[in-house]
Design a protein around this nucleic acid. Structure first.
Lengths: 246, 246
DNA sequence: TTTTTTCTCCCCAGATCTGGTGAGGGGGGG
DNA sequence: CCCCCCCTCACCAGATCTGGGGAGAAAAAA
């Protein structure tokens, strides 16, 4: 069912979209996919964007360019309730359920509507390795009832589409997955893990039942392998590369 | 299509499973769901488990209890190529594509088979807020061809099921969330970011054009907010929670 | 407008980490 | 059989970090 009530052959269209995404070999394809999805479902906007404390790493979608520029230039990531809310959640969320109290948020919403974003929205948070975070959003202009029916009918599709978008985005951004070239020895992993858990060198050594001298050898060895300048840096890199868990 | 080739009404059964998961209000329900899914697809095992360096936080599934105990007791998380491999990936992965070189991994695989895990496997990595990480795995005993066909036919279903499992697990484990609320101030983010990049305190202060004393205040403040015991711990947590990027 | 948070600066002593070098035993792979 | 990597231990001096105080101005939230 499209948002306007007309029928679509749900499963086939979803498969077509996902396969198209799978076959995409360039960023352009993701942009085109957002437009196809928008047209297929008959909604106003479809957007995928990678969210990053440093600003948008990559994004594609059907929002007006003016709005996108405004958003970036104003650094709205900091106040956008969609970002903030989704960042703490796992399951997709309807914009109505987010926290729109607060002056900045209200003003932001109003401005977004002025740029044609629509009065309804539904966002799917997605997380990849190394703390990567992205959002897949659909938005529209309609009544609450219509929108509820639409999201209820398609939330699963949207989760899958979001997943495939993110998969491609990760493929295109390979510096996220440099090479697992340098692996750490088991003992080095232990050391890095405990340090990342807040243990001091002395505590770590005691926990591992080795002398602090030996521990230092591991730390230095790990630091060398990871190309890190100090212990904190080494732990940060080990975490970022998924070599240890906390 | 089931793994043995017989047909199932794909969409309806999937919907039933997902709705059952949605309606579950106790951990027991997840356990039952794994068994239902196993029977529905006609495979050997279905497992969902939360992965954590400290050991398994929560898990349910159809593996033999003996194997589960053995796994925990031996702390196989450290060497399990499924864990290690999925931790660096986003998309689900067939076990065959993982790295099974290495003596420990080989021995592990053999032991797992001895406990009836099966010779084929397919695991879906899932990530939630705060660096939460979990795996949803299906395993079986069959030829490569049969397994390939099965995973190709159902990988999308499995992604969705994994998503719903994790959603419930997060609901049941709300103590992940409280600490999450703590956000860092912009300056604190700057400090943590530079430290994670390997800068010393002196370099960081200089880069931010503030005195080292001031920088220390940020570090301590961030450490406090993050409940960290030292700078390295604070950086590790900030990274794990996605508050900073490197 | 009041209150809260953020940003900036300062002191000091003791604990902790870092850098560079050396050395012996054990296990796996070529 | 040899080589390379992993694990273990040791010394020392100087650089760096930590803990616990206090304080004022500006900005944001209530």
């Amino acid at each position: 069912m499209r948002v306007d009530g007309s029928k679509i052959t749900r499963q086939d269209d979803l498969n077509r979209i996902l396969e198209a995404l799978d076959d995409t070999s360039e960023l352009e394809g993701l942009q085109r996919a957002t437009e196809e999805i928008r047209d297929l479902y008959g909604i106003n906007h479809v957007v995928y964007h990678w969210v990053d404390s440093a600003g948008e790493q990559y994004g594609c979608g059907t929002y007006a360019n003016a709005w996108r520029e405004r958003y970036l230039q104003q650094n709205y990531i900091r106040i956008d309730p969609v970002i903030i809310g989704c960042y703490q959640r796992f399951h997709p969320v309807d914009w109505k359920r987010l926290d729109w109290t607060g002056k900045a948020a209200r003003a932001f919403l109003q401005e977004a509507r002025a740029y044609g974003v629509g009065n309804q929205g539904f966002s799917v948070p997605i997380r990849g390795p190394n703390g990567q975070f992205a959002l897949f959003t659909v938005s529209h202009d309609c009544d609450d009832d219509v929108w509820s029916a639409f999201t209820a009918a398609h939330s699963r599709d949207l989760i899958l589409i979001a997943h495939y978008f993110n998969r491609k985005a990760l493929e295109f951004e390979p510096n996220r997955q440099p090479e697992a070239a340098q692996t750490l020895s088991p003992r080095e992993v232990d050391a890095m893990t405990l340090l990342a858990m807040g243990y001091s060198r002395a505590q770590t050594a005691e926990t591992l039942s080795i002398s602090e001298h030996t521990l230092r050898v591991y730390i230095e060895s790990a630091r060398f392998k990871l190309g890190a300048m100090n212990t904190t840096h080494a732990v940060a890199r080990a975490l970022a590369r998924g070599l240890i868990m906390v």
